[in-house]
């Protein structure tokens, strides 16, 4: 990709306020005003606080992103902000900041789909030397709010092959962690505990049949709830065995589906995206399976899997280069399927 176009990206669709500057697809800065500490106190994300935090954080985060990139607003050629899907009260804050700067500095502005950002995140270049995938590729996008398989033929030619019918994978991790009293967020705790070898409970997986790219995680969550109820107060060993079995059940089905989709569509690249792609067990299992099937796996650095603004900047840059512009009255969209 030609360098020379610098885009400021702003993300505020859910928990994180984030800003980033990219030059072509090279990341110059990538800043997140993390809210994890605030959420820990409540065992979950607190939207009211999140919303208020976005207002407080958005301008400092933008200023930090600019200064870490060594640029000023005068060096920015375009501005992108997440326009959906997400929480309206949170989205509107990042969008408004982006529009205001675009109007004041007379640079083009575009609203970006958060899911498209996740699906393109693996194509961001940084100094970690992680290889980036060419199009087309098959992507697994799994996070707290979304779980789906996408055939990404180009940045603007993306087909959803199937998605969850009930809970998202990340939500299943959080709720199972809650059932077992393991704290929030559930993903990293379960990932760490499941890495220890030992006894394993068996849990069901849904939709295992060929050519079905839908997911369901409510069954495994209910199975864990029923198992815990049977046990009364499960011992440390019993909790460990549940955690291992749950993680295996979720990781197996996620990898199985994206690999099956890649083979069926004759695509030889597989990309992991979304917060659940930061799960080490998932990355390891995906690498093993892809290696046996002659598929090339691209697992971006973890900070590009979870919500970030670089991915929004990249999706925005590609749209701006294609001549797309959003109107200044662009409204946020709570639901916005790709």
């Amino acid at each position: 990709m030609a360098a020379g176009m610098r885009v400021l990206g702003i993300e505020s669709s859910c928990d994180e306020t984030a800003a980033s500057v990219i030059d072509g697809n090279r990341v110059l800065s990538d800043c997140i005003a993390s809210q994890v500490d605030v959420h820990c106190a409540y065992g979950g994300v607190v939207p009211e606080l999140a919303s208020r935090r976005h207002i407080v954080s958005v301008l400092p985060v933008i200023a930090t992103a600019l200064s870490e990139a060594g640029v000023t607003l005068d060096d920015i050629d375009g501005i992108a902000a997440t326009a959906g899907p997400g929480l309206l009260g949170s989205l509107v804050i990042g969008l408004q900041a982006a529009k205001t700067i675009a109007m004041a500095k007379k640079v083009p502005f575009v609203g970006v789909n958060h899911l498209r950002g996740h699906l393109l995140a693996a194509r961001l270049l940084d100094n970690t030397g992680t290889p980036i995938p060419e199009f087309p590729y098959m992507a697994l996008l799994a996070s707290g709010g979304h779980t789906a398989i996408y055939h990404v033929r180009n940045w603007n030619d993306i087909e959803c092959l199937g998605q969850t019918r009930d809970d998202a994978a990340g939500e299943a991790f959080d709720k199972v962690a809650k059932l077992l009293g393991l704290g929030y967020p559930g993903g990293p705790v379960i990932d760490r505990m499941a890495a220890q070898e030992g006894e394993m409970e068996e849990f069901p997986t849904a939709f295992r049949q060929r050519d079905n790219y839908e997911f369901s995680f409510s069954g495994v969550k209910t199975a864990v709830a029923q198992r815990v109820a049977q046990m009364g107060r499960p011992s440390r060993e019993q909790v460990d065995a549940i955690v291992r079995g749950f993680q295996k059940s979720v990781v197996d089905i996620l990898v199985r589906k994206v690999v099956m989709a890649a083979r069926s569509r004759q695509v030889d690249r597989v990309v992991l995206a979304g917060g659940v792609a930061a799960n080490d067990g998932l990355r390891r299992h995906a690498a093993e399976v892809c290696a046996t099937k002659d598929l090339q796996l691209f697992a971006p650095p973890k900070k590009r899997c979870t919500d970030n603004a670089s991915m929004i900047a990249l999706a925005g840059l590609l749209a701006l280069q294609a001549g797309e512009r959003s109107a200044m009255d662009l409204a946020p969209r709570a639901n916005w399927p790709l």
Binding site: P47, L87, G145, T164, R165, E171
Partner: peptide, 13 residues
């Protein structure tokens, strides 16, 4: 139109 858990999204329409 999938009817999915609104836990993270808070409101699905």
């Amino acid at each position: 139109t999938p009817v999915t858990s609104p836990t993270f999204t808070l409101i699905n329409e």
